[in-house]
Write a protein that binds this DNA or RNA. Sequence first.
DNA 1: AATTTACGTCAGCCATGTTGACGCATATGC
DNA 2: GCATATGCGTCAACATGGCTGACGTAAATT
Lengths: 176, 176
Amino acid sequence: MADVNSLHRLPVGASAQFLREAEIRRGIELLYFGYSNMVKGADVHLATQGLGRAHHRALYFIARRPGMPIGDLLALLNITKQSLSRVLGDLQERGLVVQAVGTRDRRQRMLSLTPAGATLETELFECLRDGVTRAYGHAGQTAVTGFWTVLTGLIPPEDRPLVEALQQPLPARRTA
Amino acid sequence: MADVNSLHRLPVGASAQFLREAEIRRGIELLYFGYSNMVKGADVHLATQGLGRAHHRALYFIARRPGMPIGDLLALLNITKQSLSRVLGDLQERGLVVQAVGTRDRRQRMLSLTPAGATLETELFECLRDGVTRAYGHAGQTAVTGFWTVLTGLIPPEDRPLVEALQQPLPARRTA
DNA sequence: AATTTACGTCAGCCATGTTGACGCATATGC
DNA sequence: GCATATGCGTCAACATGGCTGACGTAAATT
């Protein structure tokens, strides 16, 4: 390989290759640092409650799809049921999450947040929200759309329905 | 709060609020799933070598900034020196990384990859690259730029120089 | 000469993932 | 109706990769 500083001496193909590598590394790095920084604030808040990031993930998805059965949550988190059971046990002990027997299928356990759980989830969401809102605001709508497009492209097509299902509107609920 | 299904009945402010929350949750979720999927392939390859994600991160940054001292790597990884020392120990045992006494400051330990380390890092990079290349390709250049912009916005301004320094061209090296 | 800095190291702990095995209640298919 | 499959719970053991605290040593700085 030629000197990295002598791009003008590289054949066109190699130059394009080099630029592509730089752009890919940039994406990898920004994704890593962006994700790390996004969750940093939530981690601090979680620590004050004696909880960790794993608890947050469960809390987050249960908030997002109340009534979700265990199996669906396992599919989203992509961990073993043994790992999840420890996390859910902690959350139930603390009165943040409750289970109900499934209506359609009585083997299922439908998960939902208690009011205390919903409160904590909201606080944690706000930790993430502040950073994301700032980033969206400075970047503008076009950039945000591109951000979504690239990230969606990183998800294998067969897994996309799972993620997109999270964005469907929830069935009507009454909170008043 | 009104029924989520009846947006037309919401006051304008509440509607905008709701849309903003949906967009933020979408970003959070895509960032989580996008990152998870990006590193999935590399994790498999690492496992065949008896290494983990932590080893990959060290390897990655050393490849990116050869000659980087320990302290700089610590700042990038944001972990304790005790954690890093376990990881670096593994990598040195396996002959993937070497240290050299600093030239300007003899207290520093400059890290670099051995040829075997560089080979492994290249293989791991290719695992990530395939997914990122596909995502970039389907999304297009405008989307990629937006992707970078939003992610950069997630990084606190005071930390950005650290990340941007990674993207500076390397000092000339001879590999021929 | 005193202090600070960059790094190494020992020891123990915690969070969160893993595998494997087994049990029970319910749903489903023949 | 009975066999089988599915959804979930649980016990036990282990791996990875973080953490804190304490202490040491060489080299740079003041």
